[in-house]
């Protein structure tokens, strides 16, 4: 069985700083990480491989530095890593991203054998759209299973897979045919710690690097900024609220009553509402 996992190297958003004056992102010293959500996809893929045999290939589109993330994925135990990197890909929105990734996935199929399952994370923490997964699936004509909480019976002979998919009101038990694309839900597993052998292999592994041309991109105009229907016109920091909070001061005792009084003063309706709630309406 061949599984491909799409991972993305993202800046650790928690540590992103916005230039106070220009409102642009100050990249200096902002560390990059594997998009946390993608690790759930990777672990799910590795677990399947361990159970059913086969190979796991990790794929990312990004700058040359994204090699770090791929190497890390190898350390966890992935068998092969492909880095799709080319200035033509710069500034891609989700549509352009899925074009590039889908093309690379076809190429991976030709080169290392077609994928039975493609995994993506639920979403990235920088793009944060949760669209790339579905987009890839559509472009490759694969069936798509999003927000998957659990992967059940996988029957390679019959080419079917069963999953538990989170939906708004509950959990759907679905069965579909391979090949399919699965976007993994967060907190569904915990990424393993690679053994020493894997770590050693990863440290030395050669990362496959493909340019747009290598990957077999026919139409450069479909890539990167040019291939992106959406355009970011403005980037700005969220406006601060005008007035600061009204601070309740107090002595030694916790100012519970003072607080409640203040609340009801500000929201006369609130007391009635709370009473209603207390009544259980």
């Amino acid at each position: 069985m061949h599984i491909v996992v799409c991972i993305k190297q993202v800046p650790d958003s928690a540590q992103i700083r916005v230039h106070p004056v220009t409102n642009t992102i100050m990249r200096q010293g902002v560390p990059t990480i594997i998009n946390p959500y993608d690790l759930f996809a990777l672990e799910a893929a590795l677990a399947l491989r361990d159970k059913h045999g086969g190979e796991v290939t990790v794929l990312t589109m990004g700058p040359p530095s994204a090699e770090d993330s791929l190497r890390k994925a190898l350390t966890y135990g992935a068998d092969r890593a492909v880095l799709l990197t080319d200035r033509f890909f710069a500034g891609a929105d989700t549509l352009a991203t899925t074009y590039a990734l889908a093309t690379a996935l076809r190429k991976i199929g030709e080169t290392y054998g077609p994928a039975d399952i493609v995994f993506t994370g639920k979403q990235t923490i920088d793009g944060d759209t949760a669209q790339v997964g579905p987009g890839i699936a559509k472009r490759l004509g694969m069936l798509q299973l999003t927000y998957v909480a659990k992967i059940g019976a996988l029957d390679l002979a019959a080419g079917t897979v069963e999953v538990e998919r989170r939906s708004e009101g509950g959990v759907q038990m679905l069965r579909t045919k391979l090949p399919c694309l699965i976007t993994m839900l967060e907190a569904t597993n915990e990424i393993r710690r690679g053994a020493m052998v894997d770590a050693l292999r990863a440290a030395r592994a050669a990362i496959v690097k493909w340019s747009a041309q290598d990957a077999g991109v026919e139409d450069i105009a479909k890539c990167g900024l040019r291939g992106s229907p959406t355009i970011v016109k403005k980037v700005f920091a969220p406006p601060p609220r005008a007035e600061k909070a009204f601070m309740i001061e107090f002595g030694s005792e916790p100012p519970a009553d003072a607080l409640i009084a203040e609340l009801f003063k500000r929201q006369p309706k609130l007391e009635a509402d709370l009473v209603a709630l207390a009544r259980g309406f």
Binding site: D93, T94, L95, T98, D128, T129, A130, Q131, V132, G133, P134, G135, A137, K138, R139, Q144, T146, Y147, R166, S167, E168, S228, P229, T230
Partner: peptide
């Protein structure tokens, strides 16, 4: 979960832009 699952596929099928969240 439903809307995001659907929107991604529809936008890609129509090859148009989609702005999330």
């Amino acid at each position: 979960t439903l809307g995001r699952d659907l929107a991604g596929s529809v936008a890609t099928t129509l090859l148009t832009g989609l702005t999330a969240d």
